[in-house]
């Protein structure tokens, strides 16, 4: 509770004492937006942590070995992720639904276990350490978040967005209307890869350390990012950002739970998704579930015939 009291009573002190938390929320928001893009175009892709790893390792390795300026490092990292996104997307985007999800899990795990933990240049299990933070901390992250959300919001309002929406609702109908389904899906997939890799590069610079753990670039992270998007609501661009905010803050919201925080967090997750399957940000009210023993309300409908 102290956390929220400080937020309201002493915002400046709050900002100064929680910079790491605020930037983590910002980065999670950017990743969640990348997840939003693929979900909005009807693709259940969990590849984001893989592209984050590409962004993080490329930018940090360039800095460590070639001492190039940080802007160039991040740009190269993002472009590289786009190329990898194209190469992965070509075979994988023929799959749909759960199959796409599992294929992308295969991709991130093969990258994580096969490449990152096995190639000496990535520091293997030890990760990479690097010196100062060339970005200057929180402001750049929040500015990035706003910029990314704005660009994605504009995209969903335009021609691309209409095509993605049509594909999400009914792929065959979209195809019959002359929408080039494969092309638009690929655009969404690559755009999401670019954003995820940007977030990965930011995160690596924020933490002074590239951590090769499963909670960073493995399935655990993928599931977490999916939770941001679904919990927040994937119908509006702001939904996943709200989801990221709430999930990242859960340990503070349920501060009183102490050691049992994960139990409370899990129950909270189930409760939100049962009462609002469309997510926190979305149309409609609470879904009140009628238990089996509750009497059915009588509906007076004209009998047919």
């Amino acid at each position: 509770m102290d956390f929220f009291i400080q937020l309201l009573s002493d915002p400046i002190g709050f900002w100064n004492s929680h910079t790491l938390l605020i930037s983590q929320i910002g980065i999670n928001g950017v990743v969640a937006t990348s997840m939003f893009l693929v979900l909005y175009s009807g693709q259940l892709s969990l590849a984001a942590p893989g592209f984050m790893a590409i962004g993080a390792y490329t930018s940090v390795l360039m800095e460590l070995h070639w001492h190039t300026p940080v802007v160039l490092n991040v740009a190269v990292a993002v472009i590289l992720a786009g190329i990898v996104g194209l190469l992965v997307g070509l075979p994988v985007l023929r799959l749909r639904g759960v199959f796409l999800a599992i294929a992308t899990i295969g991709f991130i795990e093969a990258l994580h276990l096969g490449v990152i933990l096995n190639v000496p240049i990535t520091g293997e299990g030890l990760g990479l350490q690097h010196e100062a933070d060339p970005l200057g901390g929180v402001p750049i992250i929040l500015v990035s978040l706003v910029a990314v959300v704005f660009v994605v919001w504009r995209l969903t309002k335009g021609r691309l967005g209409s095509a993605w929406s049509a594909i999400r609702q009914d792929e065959i109908a979209a195809l019959s209307q002359g929408i080039h389904v494969a092309r638009y899906k690929m655009i969404a997939f690559i755009a999401s890869a670019l954003i995820a890799s940007y977030a990965g590069a930011l995160e690596a610079h924020l933490n002074f350390f590239v951590d090769p753990g499963d909670s960073q670039y493995g399935v655990t992270r993928a599931v977490q990012v999916l939770t941001f998007a679904v919990l927040g609501g994937s119908g509006f661009v702001i939904g996943p950002v709200v989801g990221a905010l709430i999930v990242t803050l859960l340990p503070y919201i349920f501060e009183g739970a102490g050691d049992y925080i994960n139990i409370i967090a899990g129950i909270f997750l189930i409760a939100v998704i049962i009462f609002r399957p469309q997510g926190i940000v979305g149309r409609g009210g609470l879904a009140i579930v009628r238990p089996a023993w509750w009497p059915r309300s009588r509906v007076s409908a004209p009998s047919p015939g």
Partner: peptide, 20 residues
């Protein structure tokens, strides 16, 4: 609800069991 919602609710239950 879409099947993706069931994905999240089962993740939530897994979280509860492992944390317990």
């Amino acid at each position: 609800a879409p099947p993706i919602a069931a994905l999240i609710s089962t993740i939530g239950l897994a979280l509860v069991i492992v944390a317990a």
